[in-house]
Design a protein around this nucleic acid. Sequence first.
DNA 1: TAGTGGTCTAGACCACTAT
DNA 2: TAGTGGTCTAGACCACTAG
Lengths: 223, 223
Amino acid sequence: MREYVRSLVTGSAPGSPAPSERELVHRFGVARMTVRQAMDALVVEGLLERIPGRGTFVARPRRTASRITSYSEEMARRGMLAESQTLLARREQAGPGVARALSLTEGDAVIHWRRLRRADGVPMCIEDAYLNEVLLPGFLQSGMPTSLYDALESRGLRPSWAEDSINADRGNAEECGLLEVEPGSPVLRHSRRAIAGDKVVEVSRTVYRADRFTLWVQLGQDG
Amino acid sequence: MREYVRSLVTGSAPGSPAPSERELVHRFGVARMTVRQAMDALVVEGLLERIPGRGTFVARPRRTASRITSYSEEMARRGMLAESQTLLARREQAGPGVARALSLTEGDAVIHWRRLRRADGVPMCIEDAYLNEVLLPGFLQSGMPTSLYDALESRGLRPSWAEDSINADRGNAEECGLLEVEPGSPVLRHSRRAIAGDKVVEVSRTVYRADRFTLWVQLGQDG
DNA sequence: TAGTGGTCTAGACCACTAT
DNA sequence: TAGTGGTCTAGACCACTAG
């Protein structure tokens, strides 16, 4: 019956009334507490809204804050073709900064994966990803995947939390060369610390061509 | 009794057991459904976690995604003193871009408020805010407030949703002059469309000194 | 086997809204 | 005044976990 109410609700205009609790009691021949519990779940989901004394109504769809997206997902959203070229993929010893960000000890083994990423065939960014080797046994040996986030997901390590920092800068000579822009061109630097459960699964630094990339973020007060 | 359980939970280590439902039934002399409803509220709040067959436990605190913060709040978070200097505050007719962003018609009256904002006495950014005059009657006449978001909040218009875009650029001559940096210095451009309920309450464009400002964003998969 | 949360019953009274 | 959601009672059976 949860599903019955859901089907009534899906496609209904926000604000339109849902069946009253007592009506569903009669229609399904169940107790009112049963109906309430079913509807409660839909209220928590944000599909229904109760107004005491008036009734239960289809809620205005919740706006959803930005999700954690991969480069491929992000470019797909922009209608662009994402391609990546691995510049470097090897085992390294964590330096102080990477160790701290990955919650490791300096010198611990990490995977360093550097890629030049294109959109519609034109350079878009250079990404340096650092991964905790302990969480990804055999990662380097098994051939690099197309999508890091898909690879993490298949191991149950899809990040559910990310701490990003973003600033503007000028690209250095190497960066500008790879990105195919004039030396000193403006770039957007994006650092990410991505967490799955309690584990830091990815630390990355990405440098975007400022002329090709604008970051979009949606923030909600509710969630 | 909701408050009793909340008080037990607040300060308890995540993972520690909460009283069982039947124990609370005996302790308070109420029906079990009553206990469940009280605990349900705490589960929805994220304070408790149920594990069928095992019990109810104090949940690991939810990570909360970035909230919508004002400049003053943001600088306070960084431990810096925020100051603002109004460069311009007047009624204008909305141009095509601002009209679209504010969900108005071109030529409608908007308030344009330009401020140079300092942190610890040094220029940090220039913000151009555009406000729907219809939502803020007498705003210009009543003297500009210290904080736009406080002023919006006092009118019940605290934004609960924001659509931001961020990119890197070089500052133009005027911007660099006001920001007291070399002409052509890198800047971070931040645009915001802030919404309260159904109404667009603020559209702004801010240009930050890249050498002083890094944007921090936290993203969650849950909310 | 004892204890837990998940679900359900068949009522009840309350405060509130709309007519 | 009729209808709504909010809260509550005093039970019940189930599936699951743990010792």
